[in-house]
Computed example of a mutant assay.
Amino acid sequence: MRAARLRLCGALLLLLCAAVCGTQAEVIDDILSSLSRGASFLERQHEHINLDELVGFLMLQAELKEAVRTWPHSDPISWAQRTTAVALVKRLDLTFEKAITALQQNDNKYFQEFEPLLSWRFWLIPQEWTSTDPSLVYASTMTTECYDEQLSDKCLTLLLGTWKMNGTPCIVTKPCRDTMTRFGCPHYSLSHQLLYFMIGKMRGCSNLLKGDTRMSRANMTEQNYEKIFCSNMMKTNQDIIREGLTEQTVDIFIENILICGLTGFSDFYKADWLQHILRLQDEEVGCFGRDKSIISQIIGDELLEQLQPHRRVKRREKILPDGCSSHMTAVAVGALGGYLNYYLTEQDITKRPLS
């Protein structure tokens, strides 16, 4: 009787495992299918993608190459999925060569300043996971952004060493440190504070906080700031979901998933958030955040831009003639690459969330 019960329990466990594994395989199929459509979009639009947007695809490429390297070869389905990922990597490699050449021709100064970011090798993939901490959420948050694009760009070039020809890297000025460690910043200011620490770490800069004389921050580390920022970005995303995704909030929602996931915070990879991202993709052209109603307006704006060649265009977003948001597409594919890597490694005991 006991042996029969054990056999029954074993059979139930096998069925449960098959159901879970089957579901995960289906989700990975969905992610790979979505990324393939995203790659097709990049292949068509590579001449028109801004540097900031191309970086999102390069983050994806780093994630895909890591996924291919560590992919479990446990069954034919898994092996077939890895083959699909390998083909996707090859497609992206070819497109990047063309896109980077176009970027250099279109905006050489900006290209020179941020060239180190234009390699998938720059972007490090998490080798262990951690989680956010609700107790670190700010008591109050500013109602307006405390982010200045020009200062942020300058601070990043000082880290990268591209502030002048053969410049010294890892320079942290007081204005940069004060801005990037300021508490209470919302939305894009918050995500760019995290991006600053992320890029510093990947550039190999040690002790970004050296020279900070504030007694209240005496024991703060770069990892402390990352946890504070992502804990507040988690709160932002939870608020956005509770209130309902809108055209105004969906971009920052996905950007938070991308960069906090890439920093190693696994609790951003929620299954329902993944479904929100997948539903945003346009089936026809493969981009994310497409607004067909503004296509004619964009064409009109492009004509105006040709008549006014010196008018400054915001670099961090570009609505293409097909109505696609290049920024949302870039952060979406990067976030999906993060989901893929997490699903492939979550069973690895060395990469489970840290206590």
Rank of each mutant, 00 (worst) to 15 (best):
A4C: 13
R7P: 02
R7C: 15
L8F: 06
C9S: 10
A11C: 15
L14Q: 04
L14G: 15
L15Q: 13
C17V: 07
C17N: 13
A19T: 07
I31A: 01
S34Q: 03
G38F: 08
E47R: 05
N50K: 06
D52C: 01
L54T: 03
M59H: 05
Q61T: 15
E63H: 10
T70S: 10
W71E: 08
P76R: 07
P76S: 12
S78Q: 05
S78W: 06
W79G: 09
A80Q: 08
T83W: 10
T84K: 14
T84R: 14
A85W: 04
A85G: 05
A87L: 14
K90E: 15
K90C: 07
T95Q: 06
E97H: 13
K98Q: 13
T101G: 10
L103T: 09
Q105E: 12
N106C: 15
Q112F: 03
E113T: 08
L118M: 10
S119K: 12
R121W: 13
F122A: 03
F122G: 03
Q127G: 14
P134W: 06
S135K: 09
S135M: 07
L136K: 07
V137A: 14
Y138W: 14
M142N: 13
K154Y: 03
T162L: 00
K164H: 09
N166Y: 11
C170D: 08
I171L: 07
R177L: 10
D178C: 01
T179R: 13
T181H: 00
Q193Y: 03
I199F: 04
I199Y: 14
G204N: 00
G204K: 00
L208Q: 02
D212W: 01
A218P: 06
T221G: 10
N224S: 07
Y225E: 01
K227T: 09
M233T: 11
K235T: 08
D239I: 02
R242W: 12
R242T: 02
E243C: 09
E247H: 05
Q248F: 13
T249P: 08
D251Y: 03
E255M: 05
E255Q: 06
I259N: 06
C260I: 04
T263D: 15
T263H: 09
T263P: 07
W273R: 05
L274Y: 01
I277L: 15
I277D: 11
L280S: 11
E284T: 10
G286T: 01
K292W: 04
I295K: 07
Q297D: 13
I298E: 12
G300K: 11
G300D: 14
H310D: 12
R311E: 04
R315D: 08
R316D: 09
L320M: 03
D322W: 01
G323V: 00
C324G: 12
S326P: 04
Y339A: 02
Y343W: 06
L354F: 03
